[in-house]
Amino acid sequence: MKGLKNPNKGYFAALAFDISKYKYIYLMLIPVLLYYIIFHYIPMGGAAVAFQNFKPAKGFFDSDWVGFKHFEDFLTGIYAPRVIINTVLLNFLNLIFGFPAPIILALMLNEVSHNSFKKFTQTISYMPHFISMVVVCGMVITFVKSDGMITQFLTFFGMEEVNLLSKKEYFRTIFVSTTIWKTLGWASIIYIATLSGIDPNLYEAATIDGAGRFKKIVHVTFPALVPIITIQLILRIGRMLTQGFEQVMLLYNPLIYDTADIISTYVYRRGLEDMDYSFASAVGIFNSVVNLTLLVSANWFSRKFIKESLW
């Protein structure tokens, strides 16, 4: 065995030995590592353009360094409050309304005793997940025009006959409703599957103890969901500031920037439309760092108080 002759002459010799011993594993990892280096780690380094006055003509290495200037400009500029508030608010509303919705749907379906009805409802509710965001947003835009189906329906309830996406006060409602419509059924699958795994003996025991249906929902069904809800919640908070970009990009328009413009759409416009690469990168880094902080805090909080965590 070669293993007995492990030369143990410092780290690199040991590494060379390791690579020859596991050569196929390292061979498999080549394309994988190349991908992560090129498409993840180089851009992380490239994010240093945020500290430069990057000029494509000069290139990365010859552009002037300006320190935190762009961060200061962003945070003291007039758009920072708007985009930060909108990002947090849209995601927060999504969390408040969008997060419990699939849990409630799962609990409701769990109380249905007609299997074919249950199956049918599930099948239909998953469907929107498979309709692309472009089409979903296209449908929303068409439906909320002044003569659109949704606007016309709402006029029965006293809504004015206008393009709802031209009024900034309606954007948040439209955004959250669209998200819920698209994700409700799909997001409920995980809860439904968890519920179907509950030991029937637990229900029998609860019945013997005299628990009615509501008591069983509160004391047996819901507690079974708590661990999975916690994990989903942490993941959700960890994606807080990166969610919703495509949806906002497709739905918004300059009339409603006041309520619709979020950090990532602002990055897109400043960076890729105005080609102000350095400034936009700075805003992007700000977004990534805040996002990571949120995730780490949520995970820490959960590990400490609920004993569930991602790592």
């Binding site: 992560y36 180089i42 990532s264």
Partner: peptide, 15 residues
């Protein structure tokens, strides 16, 4: 780590 942190849209585009 790349799941939780990224360089962002602009550096990826430039790359």
């Amino acid at each position: 780590f790349t799941m939780y942190f990224s360089g962002g849209m602009i550096p990826s585009f430039l790359l």
